[in-house]
Design a binder for these strands. Structure first.
Lengths: 158, 158
DNA sequence: TTACGGGTTGGAGTGCACTCCAGGTCAAGC
DNA sequence: GCTTGACCTGGAGTGCACTCCAACCCGTAA
């Protein structure tokens, strides 16, 4: 498999593949007679996994570290496992945050829909509506909830 | 509230707050006699919401657009709603992907744990193990699964 | 044999999202 | 009056993750 084929199969550009090789994310492949890179299919699985780590928010430093450990073979198993466990925790936390946000978005969409329909907004949502309305600069200190916390929405599940 | 207080309350740096103002993410605040920014508490809700959009993967362009729409008041309600609906879809897709990854990570951690214990790895996981082992370059075409697809793991639930 | 399509290299450029800095102003406390 | 600390401005610098480019090489089909 040459770089063009791998690019097509992996969804990365040839430039990106060469870049990943340069920084050490993927191993240097063999070359053919003409000096061109020849990849073996197993690289695809690795690229896919890297992509997954990236897509779930693992930065390049950690991916590099993981790639480096991988080249050390089984001696690095425990550390790789620890890295994955750490990452798992982060992913779980992200899911929680995203799920919470789903609720916030649903609430807001709902509110906007009702406002579009010309409906008077429930006082419980006033602060939210005002915030999202391009609030004219009001600098009094008398709005109806205190400065920190007390958001009246946001935690109704997805 | 001056910029330092807002920084403390919002968790952003004063530099970041000024930067957000410069690019138009947050409205220009009033100034006191000495030319210093004076914020009203409502800005915190907006910053919080922006942060949520950012944390859930909305890029700066879209956040800017949303901020711009916000300044237009109720005339932009429908478009803002559409933006949020679009974003909601992306967030839902992200959750799905993250959840899938949680499963992949669990499988891998499991596998590593067993390998650390010196256990012989189930043939069904061989490809995975090989991939994650710093596979020596094999360029035959006879490994046990065909080039595309057929991953024996990764889709067992969260 | 020549054109072409795909490969090679090193290095420069891009876009995002800040972050830092120099050099200055201002208000309050000692 | 002077120092201190928070603030001001414009602009430069940073780190990530590519992305593009010029100039070259190689193998194959027409």
């Amino acid at each position: 498999m040459r770089i063009g084929d791998l690019a097509e199969k992996s969804g990365l550009s040839t430039d990106t593949l060469r870049y990943y090789e340069k920084i050490g994310l993927i191993p240097r492949p063999l070359r053919d007679g003409g000096g061109r890179r020849v990849y073996d299919r197993t690289i695809l699985r690795w690229i896919e996994f890297l992509d997954r780590l990236k897509a779930t928010g693992m930065g390049i430093r950690d991916r590099l570290r993981y790639a480096e450990l991988r080249t050390l073979g089984s001696a690095s198993l425990a550390e790789r496992r620890r890295m994955l466990e750490d990452h798992r925790r982060k992913v779980a936390a992200d899911i929680a945050r995203l799920t919470e946000t789903l609720g916030v978005l649903d609430d807001k969409v709902d509110l906007y829909r009702r406002m579009e329909a010309g409906e008077t907004v429930d006082p419980a949502f006033e602060s939210c509506a005002r915030t999202e309305h391009g609030a004219p600069p009001i600098q009094d200190s008398s709005s109806h909830d205190s400065s920190s916390g007390a958001r009246p929405r946001a935690d109704s599940g997805p």
